[in-house]
Design a protein around this nucleic acid. Structure first.
Lengths: 350, 350
DNA sequence: CTGTTAGCGCCTTCAT
DNA sequence: ATGAAGGCGCTAACAG
């Protein structure tokens, strides 16, 4: 009853290193050296161990390896000091992931830096090599930041970029969405939702110096002007991701353009825009980023037509898994780590 | 250099069971009994061990526990014998997951059954208890199937339903999407994309006896008729998920309704519908399920406006993780296991 | 009811 | 270049 399975039928047990050693006629230690690609083994011996491995279809038991190595790890997560609803959610998810990390002897520190200031970010990263085995950072594509990342990597620190990439750096992975594609997705939705109508479409973003914002804008423009000639794209307004500024910007657009029929907020601070739209009471297709309290309410009320989202829980878990994989050398399942451009309407808001 | 971290600053090591035992003044075995909630320990002893656990913030090392238990597992995945592009993809993902399972001494068998025939499915499930520790099955909400699942559960087998649920059974989890919500999502997209136009909307599904299809239809109807009165929903046509039948159904709708402006295929067999639409050359909003070869092409060519997707890779991994968690008693991260209703447009097709 | 002990599979000195 | 042996943290007999 305890064990209902007929164990006789089971491929009862995978081959162990000991089986491999016996099969190859060498000791455990030698087999281990081959498995872990350490040198100090004659080529012929390596060959015979390799054959044994292949013959027995040996795969190391990760639990045993971890136990034996008994390493412990320390990771830093670098998040922006100026926070918004999305970043707050991300931080919460990063905190939660330590429940998964700690039992594996891995510990995280969350450091808040001004990630929008290249100097500040670069110098913040600079001191990390002595204290951490891995770093996940909201990055910036800037020479100084790249240099800081490359320096960490050169010192053997595992680095992944989070949400915002430094593509030219030597970071092991970027954990975040494809921003130009997100902009194109938004434009396709906008164009489809406006179904042949003509009028103006406004865009609000945090700043023209934020790479991910500019990339989204680029993708948005590309599709909107290429495929929806009836829609006039207005110059993008910078709201610094601040609710109040965004509210003013939206109000201004509404006032200036009676034929404004679409609005895309590329960055944060959606509360302000929702407020402006609801105050004006004019129907208009508004597309926002990130599923937060404000955008959820907007979806429900109808003020927000669609939300483009990246799942912060997925991002936190993915960053943690990738860092662990880097430092332990364990394999990863790449498609599990691809962060999707999610589209939420009221009905699949989950 | 090898170890760049100043280990003195590390919370070097989590407390081990041995630390707990020492702190509580008992033996390892007793501490273990308390941790694993085995009985045969005096209440007072339990109490003191508990205090030690709390004091030291002890959390068991899962790698060590696995190694010591040294169990091996055998899981069955029940997939439909009549296959389609989605199911083929799912099967492939299930196969791939064994690369993750095998090193942990867990093995899977894929069994193909006629999951649409309650008797066949129920009797297929019936024999499984002797051979498997866990079963993931594409299910059916039918008394016999429910009974078969409940019987497995009663015999201590871990059961999860996959893609299609048996909600009234005692299965541990359902790994799949919320189908009524998927239908509503589709209707919202349809309504938005048709932006105020009036005309007919057709629906094709596999069969009125497939619960998930009927649920999607229900959700679709609910939103379409409730919120888009200008759109006339036509009676659903059954195509048995077969491309040829679907092609005929689509052609028939096109011929009979000159004002057909929308089409929703709830099930498989999208090749046929795409063919019919491309042959007719009439512009029309077509929404399909599952990102496959056919729907990808349709998105690119513009024949398919949007695809509602459930990620088969995620489903396979999730089912595997949940079964492992059930049989080992290890904890799960529930939000990692929620299968999303994904919306794909051409631009976020990834 | 509680303690002792022998592993699980692998890694790592330390010898040879 | 190779082998022997101890131990990682936990579990599971087996004694008491």
């Amino acid at each position: 009853m305890e064990d209902a399975v007929d164990r006789n039928r089971l491929p009862v047990r995978r081959a162990t290193l000991e089986d491999v050693a016996r099969e190859a006629g060498v000791s455990l230690a030698t087999a281990d050296r081959v498995v872990n690609q350490r040198d100090g083994v004659r080529a012929k011996t390596v060959e015979s161990v390799r054959r044994a491995i292949a013959k027995l279809d040996y795969r190391a038991n990760p639990a045993a390896a971890r136990l034996a190595r008994g390493q412990s790890f320390r990771f830093a997560f670098i998040l922006p000091s100026s926070t918004n609803a999305f970043m707050a959610g991300l931080m919460q998810q990063v905190r939660r992931i330590s429940d998964w990390l700690e039992p594996q002897n891995a510990f995280i520190d969350i450091l808040q830096l001004d990630v929008f200031d290249p100097e500040a970010l670069a110098s913040g990263l600079a001191g990390l090599a002595e204290h951490f085995h891995g770093v996940a950072t909201v990055a910036l594509d800037h020479p100084k930041v790249r240099a800081a990342i490359d320096d960490l990597v050169a010192r053997g620190i595992a680095v992944v970029t989070l949400v915002s990439d430094a593509p030219t750096s030597r970071r092991a992975h970027y954990v975040g969405i494809d921003n130009p594609a997100a902009g194109r997705t938004s434009a396709s939705l906008m164009g489809r939702f406006l179904g042949g109508r003509t009028g103006k479409v406004g865009v609000v973003l945090g700043s023209m110096s934020l790479r991910d914002h500019v990339e989204r804008l680029y993708g948005f423009q590309q599709v909107l002007s290429g495929e929806y000639p009836g829609l006039g794209l207005l110059p993008a307004l910078e709201g610094r991701d601040q609710s109040e500024r965004n509210e003013a910007a939206a109000a201004k657009l509404l006032a200036e353009y009676p034929d404004l029929i679409g609005l895309y907020n590329i960055g944060a601070g959606n509360e302000g825009i929702v407020a402006a739209l609801e105050a004006a009471g004019r129907p208009l297709v508004f597309i926002a980023h990130e599923l937060t309290e404000a955008t959820r309410r907007g979806l429900l009320s109808g003020t927000v037509a669609a939300v483009i989202n990246q799942d912060p829980g997925h991002e936190a878990r993915s960053a943690a898994r990738l860092l662990m994989a880097e430092v332990t050398g364990e394999p990863i399942l790449l498609d599990q780590e691809r962060i999707r451009i999610e589209i939420f309407l009221r009905d699949n808001m989950s």
